[in-house]
């Protein structure tokens, strides 16, 4: 634009005049450009999560009534979270796996909080394309490895929520959480 502005005016001018005019035009057009870019900030960020959505990104769950072998689905950021009370057998099965042989190598201890080994808390979102795996509800298909099974494209997760078979690339995600007491978990 700025260059056009200069070449578009046919008057002959002294070298000094050309430089000054050049400078002013370039500066004016640049200022307009800067303004245009600055306007993009609100135009783009308005589509990011709004304050009420962000504020809802923390959930407290009372886990006192969950028996070993049971799991509940909590809601965190409008998505399911699986909170599973592992049985001794399931813990043993998870520990028996050779970590090095896994697609996404992680031991059970890396996926639970210290002192709360029996509580496996993961997102209920398959890492393949986002379906909700089965296995948290009573009587659901737990897949070939006794953990979770995603019916969309057949991903099998083991008792520690690790991917063992199927297209999913990584283990079920462990969200940020902490035990605020022995029976209350705060997710997020």
């Amino acid at each position: 634009m700025a260059e056009n502005a200069v070449t578009g005016t046919p008057e002959e001018m002294s070298g000094d005049g050309v430089r000054r005019r050049d400078f002013i035009n370039i500066a004016a057009v640049s200022a307009a450009g800067v303004g245009g870019v600055a306007v993009l900030v609100p135009l783009i960020s308005q589509m990011a999560p709004s304050a009420d959505v962000l504020a809802a990104s923390s959930t407290e769950v009372d886990i006192s009534s969950i028996q070993p072998g049971q799991a509940v689905k909590a809601v965190f950021r409008k998505q399911p979270v699986f909170i599973k009370h592992l049985t001794a057998k399931e813990i043993a099965a998870a520990d028996a796996v050779n970590v090095g042989s896994l697609r996404d190598p992680q031991s059970l201890d890396e996926r639970v909080k210290e002192g709360h080994r029996e509580w496996l808390i993961t997102m209920g979102v398959c890492t393949h394309l986002g379906c909700v795996p089965l296995g948290a509800g009573e009587g659901e298909n737990k897949g070939e490895y006794g953990g979770y099974f995603c019916p969309c494209h057949g991903s099998h997760y083991d008792t520690a929520g690790r991917i063992r078979k199927g297209p999913a690339p990584t283990n079920l995600e462990v969200p940020e959480y902490e035990f605020t007491s022995d029976t209350i978990v705060q997710i997020g």
Partner: peptide, 13 residues
Amino acid sequence: EHIMRDVNWGWMM
């Protein structure tokens, strides 16, 4: 009101 209070730059829009 949600636009005015919670949406990023919603009040300005």
